[in-house]
Simulated assay, not measured.
Amino acid sequence: MTTTSDVDTAYRRCEQITRSRAANFAYGIRLLPQAKRRALSAIYATARRIDDIGDGTLPPDEKLDRLERTRTALHLLPGDGRDPVFTALADAAARMPIPLAAFDELVDGCAADVAGRAYGTFDELHWYCRCVAGSIGRLSLGVFGAADPGRAGPLADALGVALQLTNILRDLVEDRADGRIYLPAEDLDRFGCTLRIDGTRFADPPDRLIALVRFQADRAARWYDTGLRLLPLLDRRSAACTAAMAGIYRRLLDRIAADPLAVTRSRVSLPVREKAWVAARALVGRPA
């Protein structure tokens, strides 16, 4: 039997995971009232577990097996109560309309990574972005609540896609070194790029890389423009949380668009004080 003390301990573990592993999301999550903050931390900790399986060092077959076992465990919540992350998630789902089935999509996206799936068109990449990030937007909306759920759902999904497109640009070199190319083949062909690595950098001519990255950044910016229409549908604290998380990533995207070759030199990031500034503005209703 799971006690109140067990549940509190489980939430504290999820919040610890979020603070230590969610460098950008933590700035927004901390703006929420306790109940929503704990619930969103449980969602993040669960998503982190799934991502870690996909990004880990196990052989592909073992990764896929663990992903499927995690999927099954999520369908059987609350389980035996011995797993703190699932204990917290089950409690949050009992209190809020969290669409737990969206975790199936996250598992599908991570399985695609394990299989080394490539994307020929943006429609195919869009599927992947919805799986690994749009799903988190929809799960988060279950915590936030919304004045018009029918409108809010697609907007939360779109914001997740915007964040994932930003991640893809930020991690271009790192992903390529791991053998992954997320940018659609049709876009690589359009700009005459291969993303072949020569030593420690891309072999493509700089002007072609600049054009490719700016094209992708413009696409991501349009997804932000759509997704941020979600903010007026949320209560003040939930809107602040969303605006802080999205604002950090949007500023990161702006930095990439201003200097596209930066993503070929190192992983682009924002300084801590700039992230804190974005979060502070979001809290007072002035998104960055």
Rank of each mutant, 00 (worst) to 15 (best):
I181N: 06
H126Y: 14
I256A: 04
R250H: 14
R219M: 03
P84M: 13
A22C: 10
G179R: 03
A177L: 14
Q16E: 14
L231E: 13
A276D: 05
R214L: 01
D259T: 08
V132D: 05
V173G: 00
I43W: 07
D254I: 01
L106E: 10
G150Y: 02
D108Q: 12
C110Q: 15
G116H: 07
R229N: 09
I43R: 12
L76T: 10
R273G: 02
A221P: 00
K275V: 12
D171P: 01
G285V: 10
L212W: 00
T4N: 12
A47P: 04
A217Q: 06
A90R: 10
D80Y: 05
A118R: 15
D61Y: 02
L183A: 08
E15P: 00
I197V: 15
L169W: 04
G150H: 12
G79K: 11
Y44N: 08
G227V: 03
L155W: 11
A94E: 11
I168Y: 03
G54L: 05
L76Y: 00
R38F: 00
Y27S: 08
M1D: 11
L209A: 02
P271C: 08
L270G: 07
Y27V: 04
A246N: 09
A162G: 11
A221E: 15
C14T: 07
P287A: 11
C110R: 14
L212T: 03
C129D: 09
T4P: 08
G227W: 03
A258M: 04
A147P: 01
V272F: 13
A111N: 07
Y27T: 04
A147I: 06
Y224R: 11
D6T: 05
R170F: 00
G153T: 13
Y11E: 03
A45V: 06
L163I: 15
D157S: 13
L139Q: 09
P149K: 13
A162M: 12
L252M: 15
A26C: 10
F122R: 14
L64W: 07
R201N: 00
L228T: 13
L67V: 04
N167F: 03
P59H: 09
Y224H: 10
L155K: 14
D51E: 04
I43S: 08
T121W: 08
C110K: 13
P205V: 06
R222S: 06
L31G: 05
R250V: 03
A258P: 02
L253C: 10
L209K: 06
D6I: 04
L172V: 09
I197A: 08
E174P: 00
D259K: 07
L74Y: 07
R130D: 11
A152I: 07
A39F: 00
Y27C: 06
R265Q: 14
L165K: 14
R49F: 01
L159R: 12
A146M: 06
K63V: 01
D259I: 00
D175Y: 03
C129A: 15
R219I: 06
L125Y: 08
F103M: 10
N167Q: 10
L100K: 10
S266K: 13
A158V: 06
V173E: 11
R250M: 04
Q216M: 01
D171E: 06
L32K: 09
A111H: 06
L89D: 04
V132C: 04
F144G: 01
C14V: 05
S20K: 13
R71P: 03
V85H: 10
A102C: 12
L231I: 06
D104I: 08
D65A: 14
D198V: 08
